[in-house]
Computed example of a mutant assay.
Amino acid sequence: MNKQMLAAAVSAATYMAAIDAHATNGDQMIGVTATQWGMAGAVVAAPQDAGTIMSNPAGLAELGMKEVRFDMGFGLLNPPRKANGTESDSDYYLIPSGAVAFNVNDRLYLGMGMAGLSGMGVDFADIMAAAPGAQAVVTTKQFYKIAPGFGYKVNDKLSIGAALNIDYQSLAIHNTAFTLPQNQVYGFGATAGLIYKFNNRLQVGASWISKQSMDEFKWNTTAGRYAMTMDAPQQFAVGVAFKPMPGLLIEADVKHIGFSDVLGRVPFQTPGGPSAMNFGWDDQVVYAIGVQKEINSKTIVRAGFNYGKSPIGREDVNNNIGSLAVTEKHLSVGMTRKLSDKVSASLSYMHAFHNDITSNVAPRNKIELEQNIANVQVSYLF
């Protein structure tokens, strides 16, 4: 009987334990470097820096370096969000990133990238409008990827590439039903891509990121053991880049993110028996367009727009109280300034416009989110 009561309590509380994933396109960061953020993530067909190892490894062969390129930076994410009008007490997150590419010979290029790609968390003191009082929800999630790989120039028109994904994920959950302390797991996946040039003005790119298969989280508590596996979604992307005149680049990308496979229904083992986290996330199709203009020999400016319908629908709000991945429209600006023949600095800013969703079934919970993301990048090219 005690186990049955515990299982029922866990099932009732799982919607409050949902992991906050407020990294713009669902729980996936739009970019890795300031350059990518400035283009609103439209970088599959015409990569600008070594960060392409994370999105399309074929781009390593298209960076125009003689020997080596380094791109190091960080981002500051400010995601004001609310659940039933209550603001989260944690509002700033640091996002590290870095990538390097090496010219081995005229055809082979090696690279490695490291970046935080999803996660963060919430800290709500009381979120339940239907049952106010001591309904705290605190979550912390981090997903970090290391990607060694290569790009290979098959000929003047075609480049291909691939990378191994080495993943790190940590997770902690606290609510009225249980407290699961910070724990971490590891996993693996792969990325592959190509770029094809029709001529000097037009080229296309495509990339595939496999599902990231993660180890099982296991938490030992005074009530017994909890366990859960949270994989990261498979992604497909295609892009078209057009250069209508010297110094001007326009790129448009479409990306499919398979959230339903990994965040639809997640089995959750509890001391009282098997349960599930019924997040109910839908697959997401993301549209991005970016424009880059060379002002002079030292200065480049960028702007972009990114749209992806929220993977959380009205019918699933009550299962995602702590999971505020509902932003849809994103506008970005950025610039690069050449500091010397080898060193340049890039800045970007993106705003994700406010969006809110209210449950269409009782209780009528409401979740809402907007975002501000600033990135700084220093590059060395030789």
Score class of each variant (00 low, 15 high):
residue 256 H to M: 11
residue 281 W to Q: 08
residue 208 W to Y: 14
residue 200 N to V: 08
residue 172 A to H: 12
residue 269 Q to K: 03
residue 225 R to L: 02
residue 249 L to H: 05
residue 231 D to W: 03
residue 161 G to P: 09
residue 205 G to V: 01
residue 202 L to M: 12
residue 231 D to R: 05
residue 251 E to H: 08
residue 249 L to V: 13
residue 262 V to K: 06
residue 194 L to K: 06
residue 244 P to Y: 11
residue 202 L to Q: 05
residue 232 A to V: 01
residue 229 T to A: 15
residue 174 H to Y: 12
residue 265 R to T: 11
residue 254 V to E: 05
residue 269 Q to C: 00
residue 229 T to D: 15
residue 242 F to C: 09
residue 234 Q to H: 09
residue 164 L to I: 03
residue 161 G to Q: 08
residue 238 V to G: 07
residue 168 Y to W: 07
residue 166 I to A: 11
residue 283 D to W: 00
residue 258 G to S: 14
residue 224 G to C: 03
residue 204 V to A: 12
residue 178 F to D: 05
residue 211 K to L: 09
residue 259 F to H: 09
residue 211 K to E: 12
residue 262 V to T: 06
residue 173 I to Q: 11
residue 193 G to T: 02
residue 272 G to W: 10
residue 191 T to R: 15
residue 249 L to K: 07
residue 253 D to E: 03
residue 188 F to C: 10
residue 216 E to V: 09
residue 281 W to N: 09
residue 258 G to Q: 14
residue 182 Q to V: 08
residue 233 P to R: 01
residue 215 D to C: 10
residue 163 A to I: 00
residue 213 S to A: 15
residue 176 T to V: 13
residue 191 T to L: 15
residue 166 I to W: 03
residue 196 Y to G: 05
residue 165 N to G: 15
residue 196 Y to S: 04
residue 274 P to N: 07
residue 189 G to T: 02
residue 161 G to Y: 07
residue 162 A to K: 02
residue 198 F to H: 05
residue 272 G to E: 14
residue 275 S to V: 01
residue 220 N to I: 11
residue 166 I to H: 03
residue 231 D to Y: 02
residue 250 I to L: 15
residue 184 Q to V: 09
residue 174 H to D: 13
residue 217 F to T: 00
residue 235 Q to W: 07
residue 188 F to G: 15
residue 243 K to T: 12
residue 215 D to A: 15
residue 256 H to K: 10
residue 204 V to I: 15
residue 269 Q to R: 04
residue 170 S to L: 05
residue 226 Y to H: 10
residue 261 D to S: 05
residue 191 T to K: 15
residue 238 V to E: 07
residue 193 G to N: 08
residue 249 L to Y: 06
residue 186 Y to V: 05
residue 181 P to S: 15
residue 212 Q to P: 03
residue 185 V to M: 04
residue 205 G to T: 00
residue 247 G to S: 07
residue 218 K to C: 08
residue 176 T to A: 13
residue 257 I to F: 13
residue 225 R to M: 03
residue 218 K to T: 13
residue 240 V to D: 04
residue 196 Y to I: 00
residue 251 E to N: 06
residue 248 L to K: 01
residue 239 G to T: 14
